[in-house]
């Protein structure tokens, strides 16, 4: 079932959906680890909470890079136009801009893990 206009709108906000997933996973994982008294636990020899947070952040950054890269290529492929339901220049541009914002937010949220104790 194809809904006209759905996929370009979804693409336009995809970066921020990645941000939302990253935010909930990072916060949920850290809260669970701390509430379960696993502050000192390790994963492959690394402290657990920083490993999870940085791992998820790396994944998130890769995801927004892929989304942003795809939008960039389409935007410069000559297919995009001002008039075209599925390849609108504006939604592609929005998709790209939004990934930058999402990447910035993810990095800002993750950096404290390098400084603060995991559950203190």
């Amino acid at each position: 079932m194809q809904v006209v206009g759905f996929s370009p709108m979804l693409n336009a906000i995809a970066g921020l959906i990645v941000w939302a997933a990253h935010f909930l996973l990072v916060y949920g994982a850290q809260a669970t680890v701390c509430w379960r008294g696993l502050a000192g636990a390790t994963l492959w020899g690394q402290p657990l909470v920083p490993a999870i947070v940085l791992g998820l952040t790396a994944l998130g950054l890769v995801a927004v890079a892929l989304i942003g890269g795809r939008a960039w290529r389409r935007l410069h492929s000559g297919l995009a136009s001002q008039e075209g339901e599925e390849q609108s220049q504006f939604t592609l541009w929005m998709s790209l801009a939004v990934t930058l914002m999402a990447a910035l937010a993810m990095v800002w949220e993750a950096v404290p893990v390098l400084i603060l104790p995991p559950c203190g």
Binding site: F23, V26, Y27, Q30, A31, C34, V49, M101, L104, A105, W108, E109, A110, V111, P112, V113, L116, P117, P118, C119, G120
Partner: peptide, 17 residues
Amino acid sequence: PSLSLAFFSGASFAVSV
């Protein structure tokens, strides 16, 4: 925990952009 607060602090700064 202060690290949890830091996630939200980070997002609070991000939204000011």
